[in-house]
């Protein structure tokens, strides 16, 4: 008996003791994020170096999940900050009064589009990401699928069952694409286009980068996905072309906010200050072609050259205001037909 108790006690001490000792020295700041997995470690390192006494704890998931989670937890918020989440989601939170107003020091240096100009300022822009088509040329040859030049090209029968895109309810990339098609083509034509696209779609993935990975591995012929992932997979040797169709493509901005009711407000403010610095933006630019700080550029290898030019004039407010309605309609149209397709 006694030996068991001792062992159990030791185990408990082991499990909690180490953590407790750490927590006493540093402030644990829980940050909800939709940043890509590989970005989290360097971001954490950079923040903890720039803001001493802070320990960053990530809760990472897709844009849609983080968005839903913040809304669900609004009575009992568990996040201190939100970082790297789509601006359209943050605008929605602002409307729900979930964000703590704060204007970081040095925010004026950022490009105007990346600043929250309507007071109270609740978010700070970091970078922009856009949707691209990852097109596997090896697989395309096998199926005689032509290289798409426009969005409409993806509805061709050669792509039937060989397309993949992110689920707009869970992925930010998925939603910005849907929002773009609806804004660009008009609602009626936009839905009609998606009806046709749906016929070709093999699967809607949970994350925004997975479609490009699947296309890169030849699992699918083409995937609608995050721009940076396309460049990265190609650089790693995948036989893919990263394409931005001629009509232009959807994009969203990733931004940072402080959650209202955080118990670590001071630490959160200092992290928000860091978000607007040049050093921070230089870090973003390792992963994003377009960042908030003017003059910081680091276009990665194999990044489509015409990207900035083909960013379609996005209306974030419209995206935020119509998010629930669009997702409900999308789900009604495409989720009830959950039968397998090939």
């Amino acid at each position: 008996m006694r030996r068991w108790l001792l062992a159990a006690g030791a185990a408990i001490a082991l499990a909690f003791g180490s953590g407790a000792a750490d927590a006493q020295q540093r402030t644990r700041v829980t940050i909800y994020t939709a940043l890509e997995n590989e970005q989290l470690a360097p971001f954490k390192q950079a923040i903890e170096a720039a803001v001493p006494g802070v320990e960053v704890v990530w809760v990472r998931d897709s844009t849609g999940v983080i968005t839903a989670r913040v809304i669900a937890e609004r009575e009992n918020p568990r996040a201190d900050m939100i970082m790297g989440l789509a601006a359209s989601s943050l605008l929605m939170f602002e409307g729900m009064n979930l964000l703590e107003p704060y204007t970081p020091a040095g925010v004026d240096a950022l490009k105007p589009a990346f600043r929250d100009s309507a007071p109270p300022a609740t978010w700070t822009g970091m970078d922009a990401y856009l949707g691209v088509i990852c097109f596997n040329t090896t697989e395309a040859r096998r199926f005689n699928a032509p290289m798409p030049a426009t969005w409409q090209d993806l509805t061709k029968p050669e792509f039937r069952g060989r397309l993949v895109m992110p689920h707009p309810a869970s992925s930010g990339t998925g939603y910005l694409m849907v929002a773009m098609w609806l804004q660009q083509m008009g609602e009626e034509a936009g839905w009609r286009f998606m009806d046709a696209l749906h016929e070709n779609m093999a699967v809607y993935t949970h994350s925004g980068s997975a479609p490009c990975v699947q296309a890169a591995r030849g699992e699918r012929v083409a995937g609608i996905s995050l721009d940076m992932r396309g460049a990265r997979e190609r650089t790693q040797g995948a036989p893919i072309e990263v394409i931005i169709p001629a009509e232009g493509t959807g994009w969203d901005m990733e931004a940072t906010s402080i959650v209202r009711g955080t118990r670590n407000l001071e630490a959160a403010r200092r992290i928000a200050d860091w978000v607007a610095t040049r050093q921070a933006n230089e870090l973003y630019s390792r992963f994003y072609a377009v960042v908030a700080y003017p003059g910081v550029t680091n276009t990665p290898a194999n990044y489509p050259a015409n990207a900035e030019a083909r960013m379609f004039p996005n209306n974030f407010t419209w995206m935020a205001d119509n998010r629930e309605r669009i997702l409900a309609e999308w789900s009604r149209r495409y989720e009830s037909k959950a039968a397998p397709r090939n």
Binding site: S62, A210, P211
Partner: peptide, 9 residues
């Protein structure tokens, strides 16, 4: 699950 979701199979 998460790595599979992100395509890192």
């Amino acid at each position: 699950v998460h790595m599979d979701e992100a395509g890192a199979i």
